[in-house]
Each structure stands twice: as C-alpha cells, then as structure tokens.
C-alpha cells in the first residue's frame, strides 16, 4: 500500500499551484503544502484532501480537477474522490523546503529585475494624493 501512496504522491507532484505558475515559479501542490490527507483502501479507492492557500481561492475547482486527472492514471487506483479541506488554514510555514526555495529564488530574481525600495514614493517630488 505504501508503494501505491508513493505513486499517488508522485502523481500529485505533477499538479501545480496555478498562482505559482503565473508567477513563473511553478510549485506542486505537494511542495506548497496543499495536500492534507491521502487515504486509500485495499480496493484502490482513493480519497485526497486538499486545502487552498487562501480561503478566498476561486481556483479550487481547477485544483481539484487537475488532481483527479493525475491520480486517476496511477496503476492500482480504482476510484478517486477529491475533498476540499476548509478546516486547515495554510500559511507559508506549510511550504516544503524545495517549494520555499523556489519561491524565494523567484522573489530574489524579481527584486533584481525591478529594484524597488520600501516606501520609495516618499522620495518622489509628489506627496500622496492630498
């Protein structure tokens, strides 16, 4: 059974958090820490629980669909049910070390591309709208 769970985890590693993709730093839902549960019984009936990074995430249906599509192909899985786990809030602490490093590298790259100083607007001639 652990082999089957391992294969499922490998498949989940091919499902990417859509916002990270748009940010040009694709991180899988496993590395994002969005997978909160995997249960599989002897007949290969699989239940996966997911959370989102924000309670307001409206891409949850896309995540669920992509997850189902990937794990349905895993040999040994007979049925797939994806549940959205609203009980567990996500924070940045839930990132895996690899996921954290990938996002931090993207941030560092962005800072180099567009150097912006905190409260830079205060150095301009214009005050805030008055």
């Amino acid at each position: 059974m652990s082999t089957l769970v391992g294969r499922v985890l490998t498949a989940l590693g091919r499902v990417y958090d859509p916002c990270s993709v748009v940010a040009a730093a694709p991180v899988s839902i496993v590395d994002m820490g969005l997978v909160t549960g995997i249960e599989v019984d002897a007949r290969g009936r699989l239940v996966i629980e997911l959370r989102t990074t924000s309670p307001l995430c409206t891409l949850v249906a896309c995540l669920a669909r992509a997850t189902e599509e990937q794990v349905r192909r895993v040999p040994g899985v007979s049925t797939v049910e994806v549940r959205i786990d609203a009980s567990q809030l996500w924070t940045e602490k839930d990132l895996s070390p690899d996921g954290r490093e990938r996002l931090q590298a993207r941030r560092r790259r962005s800072a180099l591309e567009v150097p912006v100083a905190p409260r830079q607007w205060q150095r301009t001639a214009r005050p805030p709208i008055a």
Binding site: V116, A117, P118, R119, Q120, W121, R126, P127, P128, I129
Partner: peptide
C-alpha cells in the same frame, strides 16, 4: 511594489 513606487 505598486504601493512603494507610486504616491497615488
């Protein structure tokens, strides 16, 4: 980034 750069 937008808050930092633009006064408005």
């Amino acid at each position: 980034q937008a808050l930092a750069r633009y006064p408005n």
